[in-house]
Every structure is written in C-alpha cells, then in structure tokens.
C-alpha cells in the first residue's frame, strides 16, 4: 500500500505570532496511502502547523507541496478542491444545519446537484449516521459530532485527510470505535491520513509512521517502535511532566 511517493511535502514551514515562533522550520513528507501520526506535547505547534498547511493561517516561511503542486498560502477552498480536507480540534460544526445537510456541504465539492444525493447517502451509510441524519448538529454530543465532522470532510472525496486531535474528549470505547473507523477509511477508500494527537496510545495502534514536534521543531520521525524508544521523544514527554 505504501509506495513511498510523497503526497504532501512540507519544506521548512515557519509560523510566528509576534515574538513567539509557533512552528519553526519544520520539514517532513506524507506518503501516499499511509497513516501518519503527528505527535507532540501540548503547545508543540501541531494545530498551528495544520492551520498553515490548510490555508487558514499564512506561513511566514517555507513551502507546502501537495501532489507536486505548490499550495503555500493558497486559499482553503482551493486546497480542498485539490483533494485535501481536515477536521478540527475543537469541533467546528454547522450548528443550525442538520447532519445530512452538513455532509451535503462537503459532498458538493465534487458532485453536482444530480449526484450529490448519492454521495450524501453513501457517506451517511458508511459512517453509520442514518439514525441521526435529520438531527440538528447543535443537539449532538461530542462523539457523534466528531463522526459527522469526519463524514463531512470525507464527503469532499479527499486523497489526504488531516485529523486534528480527533480523539480529544472521547472516552476509551468511543476512541477505539473512532480508530476502527479511521482504519476502515484508509483501507477501503485508500485515503491517506495524517493524525495529530498528544495521546501516544491512540497513534501507536494505528499509524505506520510517526513524526514528533516539540516547541515548534521536528525532533524525531520513524516507526512507532522507533519513536517509543527515542530518547528525545521520551524527554519531551516525560521531561516536561517531571518539571511540572
């Protein structure tokens, strides 16, 4: 499945907020078809990096290539048209819309009026949202809301899906359900996944490769086994706790 062809290439991305360097000269690649974990302690700059890649924030330096196209500082909707989508750490739901309408917004990305209904039904089916498809998003709990968010992102037919703290706030059984779902997406739809987490356990079970950020810098990358025995990573996680 993994054929070492980079679908996303990040070269020296830097993002500053005033004097604070949130992301400092980070470079890595995501290979086509893989499940990549992006980990790091709280405040390591993971979400900022995601926002910069997807065009919600403007990068101060560096380049992002998606499918060999330069998409640095491109508008978010154009990036989506090229085949990249994402979810948010704090769910950004369409509160006044029903579940199926929220999915439909994503589905319109690649489907016109005639075909959009099929895509919506397919996604609702795939993500098991049939029972709540008419419900308003604001009435949903966190777990189904996250599911809707993944469904609506997948409805855009992305080749690469970025998940920002998909597991945050979920309990153990909801978490494992989510992991199963993500594995299924990767296996059945062939979508490349990049998962941001600060909970190590979740990424270890599902990712084939992991990169680690700390204080805006890339400090390690490798297989889950390599990462869990990497001295720098252990320091970043345990060292910080020890100080606290």
């Amino acid at each position: 499945m993994v054929n070492n062809k980079a679908i996303l290439k990040i070269e020296g991305i830097t993002k500053r907020f005033g004097n604070l360097v949130a992301v400092d000269n980070v470079s890595f690649e995501i290979y086509k078809g893989e499940v990549l974990g992006l980990i790091g302690p709280n405040g390591a700059g993971k979400t900022t990096l995601f926002n910069t890649i997807t065009g919600l924030l403007l990068a101060d330096g560096g380049k992002v290539y998606f499918k060999n196209q330069d998409i640095t500082n491109e508008k978010p909707y154009k990036i989506c048209k090229l085949g990249m989508s994402r979810t948010f750490q704090v769910t950004q739901s369409f509160i006044s819309m029903s579940v199926e309408d929220a999915v439909r917004v994503g589905a319109y990305n690649r489907h016109d009026e005639r075909k959009v209904e099929d895509q919506v039904n397919q996604m609702i089916e795939f993500f098991g949202l049939n029972a709540i498809r008419k419900k308003k998003c604001e009435e949903l709990g966190l777990a189904p809301l996250k599911r809707v968010e993944v469904a609506r992102a997948m409805a855009t037919d992305p080749d690469l899906l970025l998940l920002d703290e998909a597991g945050a706030g979920l309990n153990a059984s909801e978490m494992s359900e989510l992991m199963e779902m993500l594995k299924e997406i990767n296996r059945e739809k062939g979508t490349t996944l990049c998962i941001v987490e600060h909970v190590m356990k979740m990424v270890m079970g599902i990712c084939q490769r992991i990169v680690v950020l700390d204080y805006g810098e890339l400090i390690a990358s490798g297989t889950p086994e390599q990462i869990s025995s990497n001295q720098k990573v252990i320091e970043a996680y345990l060292g910080k706790r020890a100080v606290k």
């Binding site: 997807t54 950004q92 929220a102 990305n109 959009v116």
Partner: peptide
C-alpha cells in the same frame, strides 16, 4: 435546496469549516 444555499448556510454558521470543505466564501 441548491448548492449556493447550502454553502451560504454553512458560511453563516462557521466560515472556517465551510472553506475547508471547498466553499469559496
């Protein structure tokens, strides 16, 4: 019940999320 209408509703609710889903705000 058309694309533009759904896009507008999505924009009204959450602009960032809508743009990420391919909406040209």
């Amino acid at each position: 019940r058309r694309k533009l209408g759904y896009y507008l509703l999505a924009l009204g609710d959450n602009e960032d999320a809508a743009e990420i889903l391919g909406v040209n705000a």
